[in-house]
Design a protein around this nucleic acid. Sequence first.
DNA 1: CGGAACCAGTTTTTT
DNA 2: ACTGGTTCCG
Length: 788
Amino acid sequence: MSEFEDFPDRIPLSQQALSARPTTYFDGLNPPQREAVETLDGPVLMLAGAGTGKTKALTTRIAHLLNTGTARPNEVLAVTFTNKAAREMKARVANLLGQTVEGMPWLGTFHSIGVKLLRRHAELVGLKTNFTILDTDDQLRLLKQLITAANIDEKRWPPRHLANVIDDWKNRALTPEKVPAGDHGAFNHRGVELYAEYQTRLKTLNACDFGDLLLHVVTIFQENEDVLEKYQRWFRYILVDEYQDTNVAQYLWLRLLTQTHKNICCVGDDDQSIYGWRGAEVGNILRFEKDFPGARVIRLEQNYRSTPHILAAASSVIAANTGRLGKTLFTEATEGEKVRLISHWDGEDEARWIGEEIEALQGGTRGMEPRGLNDIAILVRASHQMRAFEDRFLTIGLPYRVIGGPRFYERMEIRDAMAYFRLAISRDDDLAFERIYNKPKRGLGDKAFQKIQISARSNGVSLYEGAKLLVAAGEMGGKGGKELAKLLDGLDRWHQMVLDARDHIELAEVIIDESEYPEMYMLPPDPDQPEKPRKARDAEAAGRLENLKELIKALESFENLQGFLEHVSLVMDNASEDEEEKVSIMTLHAAKGLEFPAVFLPGWEDGLFPSQRAMDETGLKGLEEERRLAYVGLTRAEEYAVVSFAQNRQVFGSWQSQIPSRFIDEMDQDAVEVIGDAGQHATAEVQSDLYDQAARADAYNSPGWRRLQARQSQRGMSQPRETRNVVIDLDAVSAFTTGERVFHDKFGYGTITAIEGDKLDISFEKAGFKKVVAKFVKAAAAADDVPF
DNA sequence: CGGAACCAGTTTTTT
DNA sequence: ACTGGTTCCG
């Protein structure tokens, strides 16, 4: 059978292989971990609390399977959710075996394995094997067209909404025919119909979206017994990481595959299920023993990460949830600080305090060893909270990195450039054509596009072909017509280069250059010196041009453009690893799986955390998921954790007084120490006229607040904090003069209005007035150099 | 076609 | 508050 060509014949496993090699990797495993490694046959559920060495157990299990010859590398299916987790797993297995793992072709994310399976059997769901994978942008554009065509008011029924509805169905493994009657009201009663049309359109385009990568595979398995059977027999051992995050489609996928050998080992923690809002079903892990009869449940409960107090605080919060499988984390550690709790007047104060505290941590404080910035993280509920910290840290010159921000490959200019690459490879890629036919502006507006569309549709060809016919027939006049002809010529030329297998980096450079795309971001040429390199239009444009340069650099690690594009659609990683020490800022969601010696947990206020939206939309279920998020946050910390809340916060532009999060009350009191200085609240009183007195009184009456007050009076006034001397970088100071035009990575261009040590007062053209440390600013002239 | 004026949605997000 | 989108006008 052709689809198994790359599977070697199965060789019977020899008995001696089973006992042959040394097993030093058992060293350092505790008894439950060892049990999880050695219980190879039958269904196993490994319930692994935070910081209990689950990755260690999982990777050792794989190493053990391979080392004993129980399974060959290509007979093990190991799935993760993120590329990062997959990479780490691969590296750790290799490390345990003391060699690189010769092909574990089936270790990867659900999606990457989905693509692999789908490419082999594409024809079974009406696709060709070279189907393309749409990104969300393409998807939304497609849906928008369908909504318009269906005569639905796009304002009231935005494409985004439809995308969510369809995504939800796909997560639940529902093809259009299977959507239950109860869901037929979705999207103004037109959801199912549009979903069906969307799927048809995707097939015509020979494309699928992310949801399809799972859904199609499930469909193939359900409708093709013979195909399913082969894989059921092939995958002798199946391992699943983060099982609590699986959705219905993934669950079915796994259930179907596991029926022959029944050797499935799922690892997870119901207390860390935080993706319910995107289709994850905690029920999957709660039901495991029912789904897989005879399952062995192994609990990893010894925590190696956090101090006892941190663990106690986390455990007490999560104890308020119902319907847990239940684990009791313990640690052998005895020393350690309590979780600290502090209140602030507003978000700005909170950011200022955390900035100071971080500087203090660097020098060592309150019995802590001095910490590098890489050891410190700020975990927020929602990404908009990051801004206060970024602003503050830029002002005081504290290096930080934002994890999981806008991803490189999702930036507009990168997608545009990649659309050009896609067209060079396949000129019939309509979505790519639509994206760039008028980027840069070629004088081709809606009218022109409609003409192309009609031409393409009536001749039953792609947009590219349709445009070609129009040009050939001389039906595209004027500037637009000329420009279109030029674009089509370009596409032909680039396509020829692809066929000639020209160096892909050179090719990419030629495409970007000849497309004249970068000119969109440049100032018009200087008429006197047209050959001089042109300047970027503004700071943002300079960044975009810089990104295009980066894109070319990223191509170097790939053999050709096709390989690069395939990689990008599945791996949206932000690759840049920098060596400088920086504080990490990220959402609680992004923090899952990570750990830091010191963790700040700001914004613990009802409505923000737990998020009002989560509670409104899913009620108690939502609240419990928020609580798990609190648990995840606290358990990221090894030795130092601060929970904080502000009494006032700007929400959607207007000021609101805030009530401390209920999760604060749920923390075990003995594990928490209230800090902060009471004098601060006197200051608050002075300012209070400006704010709604009545609402503020509520904040002072909440249980969390009362407790905080009680503690504070018990302890008396808190100690003043020592301040560290600021080292002034003389080079940086002397580099600027008042009135000079400068450039800042975040705020753009501005003019220096005053210099004070290494702090510059700058009036920015876009961002307004800011105080900024000199080393984050460069002379405006230096920022103007343009890449292409 | 580009700019101004207006309006709505926004807070979790991987693949 | 801020962004991104759309619409209306010169």
